[in-house]
């Protein structure tokens, strides 16, 4: 564990807590994309399939349970909670998740690390699911970014949520650089490239978020 990775995990945790805070306290999910939340639930479900078989540390298991629990409860709130669901604007959330999931699944079948880790006991299925979750996480924010462009006035909590979600993967990139230089043969192109793509997708959001913070004006993304 290094400071970049711990900071990344805490930022990720904070993003989830900000969203849960928004939904649970003001009982509103205005401006939040249900499609992105559902994609994230799939990301965690497919990434943590081995939560009960491969134990790493109390921290690791606890964080996995938190991410699984929070992502599924956010989806539940937005779909079934009688008050929250009313504030969900499905006409603005029109991105079709399958056009993201299918290519990621095909790509995971074609390009995964199973071939370099032949001696590993992990089953091919787990490898493919884990790789699928990496690719899917890289693009899972797209429905939310599209929705932000359509939503004229983005409220602060939503803006902070997206910012923290983007920042966590940027911190992970620093973690991978750190681990590359401190641990021999720590090379994971698949994770690095998908993590880089994920962070680059936030580039324009970061720019407008920084501008709104610097000029102290409301955050707005150009349509």
């Amino acid at each position: 564990m290094n400071i970049f990775r711990l900071a990344g995990d805490m930022t990720h945790l904070l993003s989830v807590l900000v969203l849960l805070l928004k939904i649970h306290t003001i009982k509103s999910c205005a401006g939040i994309s249900l499609k992105t939340q559902e994609l994230y639930a799939v990301v965690f479900a497919t990434r943590y399939l081995d939560i009960f078989t491969s134990y790493i540390s109390p921290y690791n298991t606890m964080m996995k349970l938190i991410f699984l629990g929070s992502s599924f409860s956010i989806v539940w709130y937005m779909r079934y909670h009688k008050i929250v669901r009313r504030s969900y604007d499905k006409d603005q959330d029109t991105f079709r998740p399958y056009i993201l999931m299918l290519p990621c699944l095909i790509l995971a079948l074609l390009i995964n690390e199973k071939f370099t880790f032949k001696e590993i006991s992990t089953s091919f299925f787990l490898f493919v699911m884990w790789t699928f979750s990496l690719y899917l996480e890289a693009v899972a924010i797209l429905p939310q970014l599209v929705m932000l462009q359509r939503t004229r006035n983005i409220d602060n909590l939503t803006g902070q949520y997206v910012f923290l979600l983007g920042a966590y993967r940027a911190l992970y990139i620093l973690n991978w650089i750190y681990r590359y230089f401190t641990e021999e043969h720590f090379v994971h192109w698949i994770t690095w490239i998908s993590g880089l793509v994920q962070t680059l997708l936030y580039a324009d959001f970061f720019y407008y978020y920084f501008q709104s913070w610097k000029n102290n004006v409301k955050l707005q993304l150009p349509a």
Partner: peptide, 10 residues
């Protein structure tokens, strides 16, 4: 059995 080193990350 050996575990994929990458799996130690979330």
């Amino acid at each position: 059995p050996l575990r994929q080193p990458m799996h130690d990350e979330l």
